[in-house]
Amino acid sequence: MTPVLPQVWLVPPAILAGGFFAAFLLALVLGLLVVWCGPVDKPRSRGAHSRPTPTSGGMAVIAATAIPLAVILWTWRTQIPGPGFDGLLLFGFAALMGLSGGIDDVFGLPARARLLFQIVLCLIFALFYRVTSLDFGFGPSVHLWPPIGLVGSAAWLILGINAINFMDGSNGLAVGVQSISLIVIAGLAIVVAPLAPLAWYLGVPLVVWVCAAGAQLGFLPLNLPMGRVFQGDSGALFGGALVTGACLQVKAYGIASVWLGGFLLAPLFVDVVLTLIVRARKRRNLFTPHKEHLYQLWLQHRDPGHGRLALRVWALCALSSVAGVFARFYGKAVGVDLRFPALAAVVVILSLGWLILRRKLLKTARP
């Protein structure tokens, strides 16, 4: 018999609050250790910093997430509904991604080798949360042939993880987006839990999301406004894997649709995809580092302030996420699924803004 969750909270609020604040403080302390003794990222032509800066702060975020998670599961496991498999699988997936990024931060790995590792790991994770159908808000659901669903789910993971990593070139930008996304996912799970019978399975994943959000926000002051340490590939890959993996989980257990991740990361996806299209049209190597993303052009030609840029991108991601949440609940109220049409509208608006702003920035850059 499928368990039905009768209470509003998947996990007692005190456990969630304790995990969040413990992770916050741990990330701040461990982040300072990385500042003192972590690997150093030297200024590069494609970078946005002018002095050697410690990197791999993401390793502090991983540890700050893992420690409260372990304590909570060891001490209060009986108060958390559902099996622990889903939460531990998500954390393990994200941690392996983050560790691979940490190795890349220190030693440097070939781009194709990194991508191959990501493909294999994403395919393994996608096996457990393969998307089986797509709903477009009109007509019947489109049921996917299992191999197509598997490949599509893995492609989503790879695209989302690398979108966050590509956009992690300005202090605070990616860390803030990761935090906002995890908070929205956790909040949606808490609110929808009484309405979704399978939400019982998301007890441990909820603890993971909350602890990770606390760790991200605890690390943020060291990255912005202080600019004392970067999260590096370790943090971007860890955060990206958590967000994209969580989106597949909430889809699988009836909390949200497959389009949720698009709403959470729409501003990043638009910048990454349109930039890659521009580079492909110019026959440039897509694996070569560059400074052609819109946010990089903004820093170069409009405003070099990382904090002001981060606030703008955070606001865009927050608005896009709110649009997705509104479409979900309003659609339920009126009996029409508005999520895909709403996402399409968000992407069109952001794309038009991207094209207009890029043209203005390049025009300003010309002598």
Rank of each mutant, 00 (worst) to 15 (best):
T364Y: 07
L276G: 06
D41A: 15
L357D: 13
G149N: 10
S45Y: 11
V208L: 09
A344C: 10
A246C: 13
Q249H: 08
F329W: 13
S50D: 14
S257A: 11
L350K: 05
A64V: 06
L224E: 03
I119W: 11
A365H: 08
G176S: 03
R302C: 09
K360Q: 14
Q79R: 14
P146C: 07
G98D: 07
A95G: 09
G82A: 04
V229F: 11
T364D: 11
R77L: 04
A66W: 10
S153T: 13
F166K: 01
I62R: 00
T53W: 06
T75K: 13
A17E: 02
V175W: 00
G214H: 02
L260M: 15
R112C: 03
A14C: 01
W156P: 00
L198T: 14
A345C: 12
R228F: 12
L355N: 07
V313A: 01
G239N: 08
T55F: 05
S257V: 05
R51F: 11
A163R: 03
G214N: 04
A342P: 02
H306W: 05
V34Y: 06
T244H: 01
P54F: 08
W354M: 10
F287W: 13
V336T: 12
L286S: 09
A64L: 04
G31L: 06
N171P: 00
D41N: 12
A113C: 10
L206D: 09
V229I: 14
P140E: 13
V348G: 09
G57W: 08
F269W: 05
A199C: 12
Q118G: 13
Q79F: 12
G335D: 06
F20N: 01
P83N: 12
V334W: 06
G203V: 09
S351D: 05
R51M: 10
A246K: 02
